[in-house]
C-alpha cells in the first residue's frame, strides 16, 4: 500500500520578490512540486472554487496546503481565509498565514477565522527560508490531513 500523495501548495502572494524568495526556499527544501501561485485574493478564491479564470477546474483536486499573504489587492487575505474556513469543502485544508504584519489585530483575527499557523516573515533570509521550509515540511509531510467525506 502506497501512502505518497501528490504535494500541492497554493501560494497566495502579490509581492514578486517575496514570491521568488518563498519559492526558492521551498525548492531548497525539495517541496517545490506542484506549487500553484495566485497573485491576489480574488484569483485565489476563483482557483479554490473553480470560478472565473479557473472555471471548469475540478474543485475536488484541492491543495494540501495554502500559504496566504494577508495584504493582498482586491480581496484581502483575511477574507480569503474566512471564505475557505467557512466552506465545508475547503475548511479542512491547512492554511498558514505568511505575512509581514506583526499587528495583534491581524493575528487575533486570523486565529478567530481558524488559521492553522501564523508566520511573521522575518527580514533576514535565513529566518524566512527556515520558517517556510519548516511549515511546509510540517503540514505536507508530517501532518496527516483528515479524510474529507465526499
Amino acid at each position: 500500500m502506497t501512502n505518497v500523495e501528490p504535494v500541492e501548495i497554493l501560494l497566495v502572494e502579490d509581492n514578486p520578490e517575496d514570491l521568488e524568495l518563498t519559492i526558492r526556499a521551498l525548492r531548497k527544501a525539495q517541496l517545490a512540486n506542484h506549487i500553484q501561485v495566485t497573485r491576489d485574493g480574488a484569483e485565489a478564491l476563483e482557483f479554490m472554487f473553480g470560478e472565473g479564470r479557473y472555471a471548469g477546474r475540478d474543485i475536488n483536486d484541492l491543495p494540501k496546503l495554502i500559504l496566504l499573504d494577508l495584504k493582498l489587492p482586491m480581496v484581502d487575505g483575511l477574507e480569503v481565509l474566512q471564505r475557505i474556513k467557512a466552506d465545508p469543502r475547503t475548511a479542512a485544508i491547512p492554511t498558514v498565514v505568511l505575512t509581514s504584519s506583526k499587528e495583534q489585530n491581524d493575528v487575533v483575527a486570523s486565529y478567530r477565522l481558524g488559521v492553522n499557523s501564523y508566520i511573521v516573515k522575518p527580514v533576514e533570509f535565513e529566518g524566512f527560508a527556515k520558517a517556510v521550509q519548516d511549515l511546509g515540511l510540517y503540514w505536507l509531510l508530517l501532518n496527516q490531513p483528515p479524510k474529507i467525506e465526499k
Binding site: E17, D18, K71, S101, E124, F125
Partner: peptide
C-alpha cells in the same frame, strides 16, 4: 501608518537581504 510600515517597509528589506543571500 504603522500597519503600512509593518507590511510594506519590511518587504523591500527582505528582498535586499534575500537576494543578497541568493
Amino acid at each position: 501608518f504603522s500597519y503600512t510600515v509593518s507590511h510594506d517597509l519590511r518587504a523591500p528589506l527582505r528582498a535586499v537581504d534575500g537576494f543578497s543571500k541568493a
